[in-house]
Design a protein around this nucleic acid. Structure first.
Lengths: 162, 162
DNA sequence: GCCAACTTTTAGAATAGGTCTAATTCTCAC
DNA sequence: GTGAGAATTAGACCTATTCTAAAAGTTGGC
């Protein structure tokens, strides 16, 4: 667990956006890194309280917004329902399993993103591309996409894409 | 205006899903066809009331759900906020202009959809692919994508994709 | 080290966008 | 025309936020 390293990178990223690093923001971020299952704000709140029982729900919303603003976390909205949060900054799509309701990340190559962007007519300039699959995962080979990574990953710079 | 033709196709589609055609459902559907700007349920409600002042908001929600269920309309959720409705059944992506807040349809070819699907690992079977662009439209050439079509279009069968 | 200005956290009230309920109305098959 | 099921309606209710105002923490200038 090198959460202090992540904490340093986090405070740097926050500072870049004119925001301060606070214990609450660090705990919220670490909770997102520890179980990368696209939790809702309520779920984050529940997990954070095991470490910091006095935090308020409003603060969890504030922290999540700060993390989105400084671009270490992405907010995702599949269908109607609560917003979900994702600390994976690599270009990736989301696969939504309609049976289990779970969501998996699917890595995307820059070349695919270029191909997708190529469908835009001239004059349309996309700063981001979001791709959502919906469907079913066959009982075989579901291990191809790990959805829980307890090891913290280095924060990457390639934020804007995907 | 050949809305009676659309009405026939609509009642057929509804029947296929075990639903009845009703005046309310027809008016809601025609409102979606008349201004294809991805309105919210509230906006649909406001438009429908000019033609049918006694309709209730709950009925508008019911009708929209029926139309989604029988696959003549798609429900779309960009970010958090109200669900928007889209009667365009051709495979298409959405381009969300971050300045104006408006959303434009972008046609997709089957081959691009195949390329996108190809990023999925074996065992992941997507029944639908949704693509959302966010960005800006340059003041030049915005006419490439019409966003309002008053002429009713024939309903197509290619529902599942995109 | 101390203070004014600013940022952040917090609890609780308020809001937006739906969803549910129960009563009425409608429609179709007989 | 009658009974069963489907659809509509008004209004209550619910969920996921967002807002508000007060308290607590942090920071640069002295």
């Amino acid at each position: 667990m090198r959460s202090d390293l992540n904490t340093d990178v986090l405070s740097q990223k926050l500072a870049n956006s004119g925001l301060r690093s606070t214990p609450q923001r660090e705990v919220v971020y670490n909770v997102l890194l520890q179980k990368r299952d696209h939790p809702t704000a309520d779920e984050v709140y529940a997990r954070v309280r095991t470490e910091m029982p006095t935090i308020s729900l409003a603060t969890v919303y504030n922290c999540l917004e700060a993390l989105v603003q400084c671009e270490v976390v992405r907010a995702v909205n599949f269908e109607r329902g609560p917003t979900r949060y994702c600390p994976n900054l690599k270009p990736h799509a989301h696969f939504h399993d309609e049976k289990s309701g779970e969501t998996y990340d699917v890595d995307l190559t820059p070349s695919l993103l270029d191909q997708v962007r190529a469908v835009l007519p001239p004059g349309y300039d996309a700063s981001s591309v979001e791709i959502i699959f919906r469907g079913a995962v066959k009982p075989s080979a579901p291990a191809a996409i790990p959805r829980t990574e307890s090891a913290a990953m280095p924060i990457r710079a390639n934020v804007g894409a995907a």
